[in-house]
Design a binder for these strands. Structure first.
Lengths: 204, 204
DNA sequence: GGTTCTAGATTGAACGATCATTCTATGCTA
DNA sequence: TAGCATAGAATGATCGTTCAATCTAGAACC
């Protein structure tokens, strides 16, 4: 077998191994934080030796970076789905409940907050996070513009971007709320969010 | 000097020492995270030996807990100030700009996100955070109820709590937005936030 | 088809650094 | 001189990372 050639099954196997490490690392990071989780813990969770992890990742930072990069696709596929809907505005408003539920999922929220906190102090992570956010904002802005145009509104450039920021702040803030106040009335909050989004989309 | 008695100057000195440690620790936690910051770093930043820190705090966790407890008063004094204003509603809307500015302050936001991320995994920190949040929510709810009553609205119990959650999510979410998208148009976002808060307060 | 060979997969011990914490000795103040 | 404040060395654990040794699965040859 030459040094360059890799059989498909070998590539698959390597990819599966990487994924195995990333899943284990995500769990450890969620439970102990980026610096609180050790390679020893991650390797145990991934069911392999500590040294072997270094065959797939240069160092611990590279694992963090890889985890951050994985989480981009959800909002993109959502945005595409909404645009494909018959009535994009109502589809989006309809989807608010699901968005609230997702933001309150402690499983997802914990890791995402960990990532943002790390981005606040680690320039390498910050760059990845900001690029991903840029892509998501652009996608959401396109959807929003389509909705507003369909309703006959002609917003200037910055107005759409500001709507995107408000929407993002609401749902990202909800991740924090879920941790700070786990007893909140989720159904009532979902309804209030829905009403607020509707106002935002339909205002003159 | 008896074991129990402490002169006022001694108490002051001890309190100043504690504060010195907490300030240094806050800086270190903000820059490196809770687990990334070491006692050695904190002691160097505080200008004292590592061992001496253990005269004032049982362990590293106790420092974290003390830092979390310090950050309660801002929202409480704000809430009281608003209620003391001639027109509480307009005072609150007026204050949105300042609130947006504060949420986007990376200095504050970084540490607060670090605290919330820690609360998501550390039950001891979670308890402190949730109690502080409970107090803040109650205070904000009182202010909101006063505004709504003054305008002749009679909201049922849960409605006010849900408004509080939406407001909190917006401003706490803005801390995340400031990290994920530092280039956002802050003035435009502030205006949009102001309009949204106004709609929230004046709706039927 | 069975044997040999080989190169990547994998392990676990070893490394030096650093961690939180403890302890002892000394400085200082009243 | 008594007792707290303080420093800094010592401790044992654990950290991220490296490395030499072993395993294993398939290619090559007979």
């Amino acid at each position: 077998m030459s040094a360059e050639y890799r059989s498909p099954s070998e590539q698959q196997r390597a990819e599966a191994r990487r994924e195995q490490i990333l899943c284990a690392a995500a769990t450890c990071f969620r439970n102990h934080g980026f610096h609180g989780a050790s390679i020893a813990q991650i390797s145990k969770a991934a069911g392999m030796s500590a040294g072997h992890i270094y065959h797939y990742f240069d160092n611990k930072e590279a694992i963090i970076a890889a985890i951050v990069e994985r989480d981009l696709e959800y909002l993109l596929t959502l945005s595409a789905q909404l645009r494909a809907a018959r009535d994009t505005r109502e589809a989006m408003i309809e989807h608010v409940t699901e968005g609230v539920r997702r933001s309150l999922e402690p499983h997802d929220a914990g890791l995402k907050l960990e990532v943002v906190a790390e981005a606040a102090r680690n320039p390498q992570v910050a760059e990845i996070v900001r690029e991903a956010d840029r892509v998501c904002r652009a996608s959401l802005a396109t959807t929003l513009r389509a909705i507003r145009r369909a309703d006959g509104h002609d917003d200037h450039e910055g107005a759409i971007d500001t709507m995107v920021e408000l929407l993002a702040a609401m749902f990202e803030g909800l991740m924090i709320r879920g941790i700070r106040n786990p007893q909140m009335d989720r159904a009532a909050v979902a309804r209030r969010f829905q009403a607020t989004v509707r106002q935002l989309l339909t205002q003159p």
